[in-house]
Design a protein around this nucleic acid. Structure first.
Lengths: 339, 339
DNA sequence: TTGTAAGCGTTATCAC
DNA sequence: GTGATAACGCTTACAA
């Protein structure tokens, strides 16, 4: 069933059929009704390939989600949809693997159909540096800071990971802790890993706390198992510590289990704080202290900035959104007599 | 950059360019190299709309993933990719929200491009009943049993939820438990919920165990919070039990926290078993006993059945894959003196 | 081995 | 208001 068939059935030409289907003016009420009816009766569906091949103007906003099974993005997306529902812009969401190149994917999608602008949920700064110059639409990168790249059409809305990590360390220091270990992401591979690590160290320095990275830090992947293994490795070489800083909740969970298996209790023997604010955290025993991103704000500002770029143009913005510290049961004031 | 531009640049015609790009025979080595080079140099990417608009035959298998942020499907997909990597069939993965209609989405996608067959990761039997007749490709529904629908082109590979639930209850009964409560999905809304519930009851009957569904069963949503709330509700009306059957690990986690907040310990006071086998489960304290689907087998058989239907045709198959029981720390033998 | 041209299902620009 | 008709970028006979 094509518009040609529809034209034949109704006795009108393909031009008129197309005009009716796209709600263009200059069609008689009679033609409109006849064609509308036939379309419904036959269950006509336009061929999107032909449509996109031809169509020049855009109405849609593209959302590129990097990491299909990422809870943070799931929440973020829901928020974005909420904020954009009020506008007249439909959303097209494209999900991809963690390890695909989100920028090249966007380039590809832009060739396939026209968009007004792009929201990137997550992204790798390297990919942007290399390929973003091929995109000429207003874009917002969410959860990463893109200010260093200074592309004229790329804004970013993110959480200041360095500050957030500093805050986590500060909180534990305020509880009396002085002996730390860090279970983090690989500083070479992950921007996030590097920034959070720097934040912790900054806090240590400000409070005159000794820290030996070669002994008391592990840079691994963001997974339960890696959190478990890294902690076990720290324990096995006999490191003494009263607080463990994990750069992700999943790592913190693995770490807590490793401590348990080593006969150490959280928070009595070791305080643990994570990162991300997974919903899960507040059901665990003990409830997991953590730092979370402010998803609602992140979503709201991203939408505002993108719509503004689309409608008004102007220079790109790079905005940091305040994070949230959740002090929960997995941290504990260090008793004086403990050490 | 179009094939026309490529033709102009290399001095060949669009026909030759197209033939080179699609690895057709009857092109001179010289032309092949020249055009290949130009394509790489200019970063040429074919326009998929034009390609699909024209192309008649299919080479690709479509995978429709229902529920973007579902860990089970994440694992399943990885397995599927592994098994299909050996074949000559590329995969096209389409992710969608939990609440979209996966069948209509597939219908739509089939209009956009040609596929050899479809793998559905998850699906709602109602949607299939209503709309699947519009799909005429060989299909396999994974994780749900579609035998009752008897479509000539729809196979299914699934886990027998009823048996699995029975097995979970049997295991706890073997540990001496007699007083159960069930925290499950809504029996009206969810096939899975209904089947698992029936499995539990069947086990109860076989062992002569009294069970009052109006008092000792809660049908809610599959979430931490709903597991927590349902358990709290059971406790608040004073139900006495030594074992809690949860129809999902997330519910079990919520339940364990609710028990804890009520002063009850797992497994000392109450044994808990979940469903799904989330990786998380083995890091929890206590490690969560659970029933999991055999992801590898599910993936392997799905691929085998689909490829067979594509290549040989034949009648659809409906195969149940054995589940896996993981007895872990959250269950406990009931001491004689306890009751 | 290569070029030419028809046509996939649309939209958009003309005349009428 | 409406109907021809030329694109859009590609594949694929068919001719050369």
């Amino acid at each position: 069933m094509t518009i040609k068939d529809l034209a034949a059935q109704t006795g009108y030409s393909v031009g008129t059929v197309s005009r009716v289907l796209n709600h263009h003016p200059n069609v008689s009420e009679k033609a409109r009704r006849a064609i509308q009816d036939a379309a419904i009766r036959t269950g006509f569906q336009p061929n999107v390939n032909a449509k996109n091949l031809k169509q020049q103007y855009a109405t849609t906003i593209l959302v590129v989600v990097k990491g299909t099974f990422n809870e943070l993005f799931s929440e973020l997306l829901e928020s974005l949809q909420g904020f954009l529902a009020d506008t007249r812009y439909p959303l097209h969401v494209d999900y991809m693997d963690e390890d695909s190149n989100e920028v090249l994917r966007a380039v590809q999608l832009c060739r396939e159909r026209k968009y007004l602008g792009i929201l990137f949920l997550g992204g790798n700064i390297q990919n942007f540096k290399q390929d973003f110059s091929r995109i000429h639409l207003p874009c917002v990168l969410i959860t990463n800071n893109a200010s260093s790249l200074s592309f004229p059409n790329l804004s970013s809305v993110y959480t200041d990971d360095r500050q957030a990590a500093r805050c986590a360390a500060d909180a534990l220091i305020a509880l009396g802790h002085r002996q730390f270990v860090i279970v983090g992401g690989d500083r070479e591979l992950s921007d996030t890993g590097r920034l959070r690590y720097e934040g912790y160290l900054q806090s240590f320095q400000e409070h005159g706390i000794q820290f030996d990275a070669t002994l008391d830090y592990r840079g691994v992947r963001f997974s339960y198992q890696d959190g478990y293994d890294a902690t076990q490795s720290l324990l096995s070489i006999g490191r003494k510590f009263t607080a463990l800083l994990a750069e992700a909740d999943v790592m913190a969970i693995g770490a807590i289990r490793a401590l348990w298996d080593h006969g150490l209790r959280v928070p009595e023997d070791v305080s643990v704080i994570g990162f991300d604010g997974l919903p899960l955290g507040s059901y665990l025993i003990p409830q997991l202290a953590t730092i979370s991103q402010d998803v609602k704000q992140l979503a709201r500002r991203s939408v505002e900035i993108l719509l503004n770029s689309i409608e008004q143009g102007g220079v790109p913005l790079h905005e940091s959104i305040p994070f949230l510290l959740h002090q929960r049961e997995s941290t504990h004031r260090l008793e004086e007599n403990h050490n």
